[in-house]
Nucleic acid binder design. Structure first.
Lengths: 342, 342
DNA sequence: ATTAGCACTCAATATTAGCGAGTGCTAATA
DNA sequence: TATTAGCACTCGCTAATATTGAGTGCTAAT
């Protein structure tokens, strides 16, 4: 990152912040009017020409105003931007609108909807992987003659409900006995580990419990598959907000936007990248390999429970000209909040 | 519904079916070419003029082709359309892609996503109300020192997970005891009824159970509120499919479409209307009081468990020129399928 | 009763003209 | 030497205008 003259920084800053608001190319006359260093439009034009040479801004066409480039935004975020801290009032609002009396999926969805509402961009969340998470508790609940509900509680607050069909009519008392027995075994093992353990135990202990266990093992596989399934892994917030942005105000652009999100894998890759790392990460424009859509930026932050087992990451997708000063601390705060409650 | 000459019916049919495919006004020349009764364009024009007089079609502007009106569609659906039956292969596909080993919410979401995929319109589902549904089973699972998970199973397959904070450290054994005790009480009562029953029992039986019960009662209220909350009541599928339809191919239209769905209450009203009734219902264009969006149709069907307690309805929103021949049996079949599995 | 022929209408598309915001360059100024 | 006023020039945007063509209604002939 090249060093920039104070004057240059100020002009770049004005261009970016104005462009963030209006989405229109910014001209020299406007800057001259707003700028604290009292310069004429002509002087500003010289500075702009220089900034363009360095690659921070460009003209969409000859003799239009200037628009920030990806490196322009990057410089702005790294060297100029001072993110505002979230006000206590806003913190209060966030905390109060997240109802933490539910399993983690619900909480994550709440976080997404909240972030969607307050940021007006498109939030995404990567849930912790359950396949490797430890199982804390398992419980069988009789539904009717041949169906029972298996409730599995994982570390990190995940609750999975599964209905399995049985070959005979178990009594609830019997099931409770099995629950207790199993809970002795599972304590703190992942379902991958348990598959082996349980299978070994079956050989020792062939009783009516046997076929039930088979059902459970089959069930473990189901949970495993479902978790690796994208739908239970990546949560995407409302796309609608993005459509309000002027860069997507025509049909073709909207179409290309929809296309870009069709394949979740690229988004997942992006979030998995940041899942390991601490703090905020920002991807600007075609920075990523995900260059389908120019003009989009992604702010991400990872979250992780204090004990360190369950982690994921949260992101916010918006136009490159998104309001970083507000969006960054929001993502940051919500990520921290998630750390606290899972 | 007025009777129509065979010839008139055929022309109307061709107009509608062509319009469903192309979304463009249909001209006399085209009909003359396709039509089995070999008539010249001029004759067709006479018929068309007559059909327009009766209100089944209209011209968007002078000397354009003809477009069906709401009554045109209505006549078509009631008197002309022969819905294709779903092929065995399709039935197989539907059945196999609905994984019924989950609670009812998951199943309903699966149904929505499936319907969205195969129909390319926008599915909606009204879930059964849980407030009045009977509670079958309640179970406490210890998570950590001060948090426990309450699992409530309702008739109809609803499972609600709630995390509640307790004032002291309950042991799992203790909790299991309470579970058993409570399950004796709750058997087949709604949570509304239970609130009264439990409160009465507290007076008789003041022990350490007391504060836990308070938590549960509070929890009942939470469930109640959450259920009456729209988000857990009306499920809406992806809107994106609708945007592909040519009638929404410009920005203004998309905006108005988004606006129309912003307020869920109108959709809920519509679905609640049909929830009581048997069979398929079709709302065309501005048929409903929900006239915000002309040009939309809704196909609905109710579902109900065999025992009759839990019921809701499922719908499919598309442009008025939707492919009824395919869409109607799909909605119908999925509704029936839901009846079978809840 | 049907149809060929024709004048007419009107959306959609292409063409042109004019405006104006904004530029780069040059020469004058502090 | 740094800054600025002046000016010719560019080019997207908008509105006005012309052109096209699909489709019509009516009339007269079959």
């Amino acid at each position: 990152m090249e060093e920039l003259n104070e004057r240059y920084r100020e002009v770049l800053c004005y261009i970016i912040e104005e462009y963030i608001i209006t989405a229109n190319p910014v001209g020299s006359k406007f800057i001259a009017g707003k700028c604290s260093l009292n310069l004429s439009p002509a002087s500003i034009r010289n500075i702009m020409a220089s900034l363009e040479e360095k690659g921070y801004i460009y003209q969409p066409y000859f003799s239009a105003g200037r628009v920030p480039t990806s490196s322009g935004y990057k410089f702005y975020i790294n060297s100029i931007l001072k993110t505002k801290k979230i006000s206590k009032q806003q913190k209060e609002e966030i905390r109060s609108s997240l109802n933490i009396s539910g399993d983690i999926k619900k909480i994550l969805w709440q976080a997404i909807n909240l972030l969607s509402e307050i940021s007006h961009y498109m939030p995404i969340v990567l849930a912790p992987k359950r396949t490797y998470a430890n199982l804390l508790h398992i419980e069988f609940i009789k539904l009717d003659k041949l169906n029972l509900l298996v409730v599995m509680v994982f570390e990190g607050g995940f609750v999975e409900n599964k209905i399995i069909s049985t070959d005979r009519d178990y009594k609830q008392v019997e099931l409770s006995k099995y629950s207790i027995k199993l809970n002795g075994i599972i304590n703190g093992h992942s379902i991958d580990e348990l598959k082996d353990t349980i299978i070994k135990d079956i050989d020792k202990d062939r009783e009516s419990f046997f076929s039930l266990l088979n059902g459970i093992i089959f069930n473990f596989d189901l949970v495993k598959n479902e978790v690796d399934n994208e739908n239970d892994y990546l949560f995407i917030g409302s796309r609608m907000n993005l459509f309000d942005e002027p860069e997507f105000s025509n049909y073709e652009k909207i179409k290309s936007l929809i296309k870009a999100f069709e394949d979740k894998r690229t988004i997942i890759k992006l979030l998995e990248l940041t899942k390991q790392k601490e703090g905020i990460h920002i991807f600007i424009g075609s920075d990523t390999e995900w260059s389908d859509i120019n003009g989009l930026s992604v702010i991400t932050a990872s979250y992780r429970s204090k004990k360190g087992f369950a982690g994921g990451s949260i992101g916010l997708i918006g136009p490159s000209r998104m309001n970083y000063a507000l969006a960054i601390p929001m993502v940051n705060y919500i990520a921290k909040f998630l750390c606290d409650i899972i």
